[in-house]
Amino acid sequence: MSTLDWTLNLAILALMISTVVGKRTVTLMTYLRPLVIVGGVGVYFLQDLPTAGHDVPLELAGVLLGVVFGVLAAAASRVYRQGERVVVQSGGAYAAVWLAAIGLRVAFAELATRNPGFGRWVAEFSMQHAITGADAWRAAFVLMALAMVVTRVALIALRSSSARGPSLAAAR
């Protein structure tokens, strides 16, 4: 991994934890901030999305893994009504999901580039499965991050919408 890759991964981790962990009123920024962050990363890294060989199935696997992490991140966030406002509260479990997602990506990239045995295995796997190379793996991991954020945002939006319904007092 390059210094830029390390910096971006750590910056995304810091932003996704620092802007979400805690108790926060749900606003438009609850949805826009994470989407803008990963959208910028996506634009930067996915200018030439590899589609040769079996790159697309690898990238779809990245999306699927991102959806799984997004569901876990949303499940680790509590959404509830507090008076007239809707609140989302995330803590250690949410941070742990993000740490696991980023950690797995970083560990894979570091092992693939710095561990000759693992690097050889990735190269052989890639050849056997017609994956064109490092750009396809990078795209799969970037798509994983995008899917994770979009999934969590969508699920929080859905749960926030449900919480906005009539209060118990008004329903009586």
Rank of each mutant, 00 (worst) to 15 (best):
D5T: 10
D5W: 00
W6P: 02
T7R: 07
T7C: 12
L8M: 10
L10K: 12
L10P: 11
A11Y: 12
A11N: 09
I12E: 08
I12F: 15
I12R: 00
A14F: 07
L15Y: 00
M16H: 02
I17W: 01
S18G: 09
S18E: 00
T19K: 06
V20N: 01
V20K: 03
V21T: 09
V21Q: 01
V21Y: 05
G22D: 01
K23E: 04
K23Y: 00
R24F: 11
R24W: 05
T27P: 07
T27E: 01
L28C: 12
M29W: 07
M29Y: 07
M29A: 11
T30G: 13
Y31D: 08
Y31I: 07
L32E: 08
L35P: 05
L35C: 08
V36F: 09
V36P: 04
V38D: 10
V38I: 15
V38F: 07
G39V: 06
G42Q: 02
G42P: 00
V43S: 10
F45K: 11
L46V: 06
L46D: 04
L49W: 10
L49P: 13
P50Y: 12
P50V: 08
P50I: 03
T51D: 15
T51C: 09
A52V: 06
G53K: 04
H54A: 14
D55K: 03
P57E: 14
P57G: 14
L58N: 14
L58K: 13
E59M: 14
L60M: 15
L60Q: 11
L60G: 15
G62Q: 02
G62D: 01
L64N: 01
G66V: 03
G66W: 01
V67T: 10
V68K: 06
V68P: 01
F69D: 02
F69S: 06
G70M: 02
G70V: 02
L72E: 08
L72A: 07
A73V: 08
A74I: 03
A74S: 05
S77Y: 04
S77N: 10
R78Q: 13
R78A: 08
R78F: 10
R78W: 02
V79T: 11
V79S: 04
V79D: 07
Y80G: 05
